[in-house]
């Protein structure tokens, strides 16, 4: 409350990353629908048309909305992550409870110089909290900040 933990958005390039990821994921059902379509097993367009609409929604609308919901703030002693388009979630991890930290880059993310920061806690719930779509150097800097904090806290 008292600290100026302004929630920050992810890197805008993450929208593109989500779109590409979703498009690749959708390629399989789309190809399947095309095969059914060309084999003319069913009435023309029974599969492909609804699927195309769904795919367009998933690729062009959903990522932008999800991006808009992702926010984070690294406060003095806590990391807060807000996310969720359908299922809203607002997670706070005290830095002193973090066991280890990962910075991970997938192949698509690497092309856009993005990374995912994951912090692990000892809790059974939220054992790993991930924050994707950070600029790589931002993720690394956050990791260093958290590490410094833990080192200082352990004395």
């Amino acid at each position: 409350m008292d600290e100026p933990d302004q929630l920050k958005p992810l890197d805008p390039a993450y929208v593109t990353v989500m779109r590409i990821g979703m498009a690749i994921f959708l390629a399989i059902p789309l190809i399947g629908a095309l095969v059914i379509e060309t084999a003319q097993l069913t009435a023309t367009g029974l599969f492909i048309i609804p699927l195309a609409f769904l795919a367009a929604w998933l690729v062009f609308v959903v990522p932008a909305r999800r991006y808009a919901r992702w926010q984070y703030a690294l406060g003095a002693d806590r990391l807060r992550i807000v996310r969720g388009f359908l299922f809203y979630s607002d997670t706070v991890v005290p830095l002193g409870r973090i066991q280890h930290i990962d910075v991970h880059q997938g192949p698509i993310m690497r092309r856009f110089d993005l990374a995912t920061l994951t912090v692990h806690t000892a809790g059974n719930h939220n054992a790993g909290v991930s924050l994707p779509g950070l600029r790589h150097e931002v993720a690394v800097a956050m990791r260093e900040t958290i590490r410094e904090y833990i080192k200082a806290a352990q004395g």
């Binding site: 969720g84 359908l86 299922f87 809203y88 979630s89 607002d90 997670t91 706070v92 991890v93 005290p94 409870r97 806690t121 000892a122 809790g123 059974n124 719930h125 939220n126 054992a127 909290v129």
Partner: peptide, 25 residues
Amino acid sequence: VQSVEIAQSPLARLVGLVSLRFGVA
């Protein structure tokens, strides 16, 4: 407490309620 999460499913949003989940070792 290891972590705190305020979560809301679409159903819970209808009634304007949330659940509070705590990470416990």
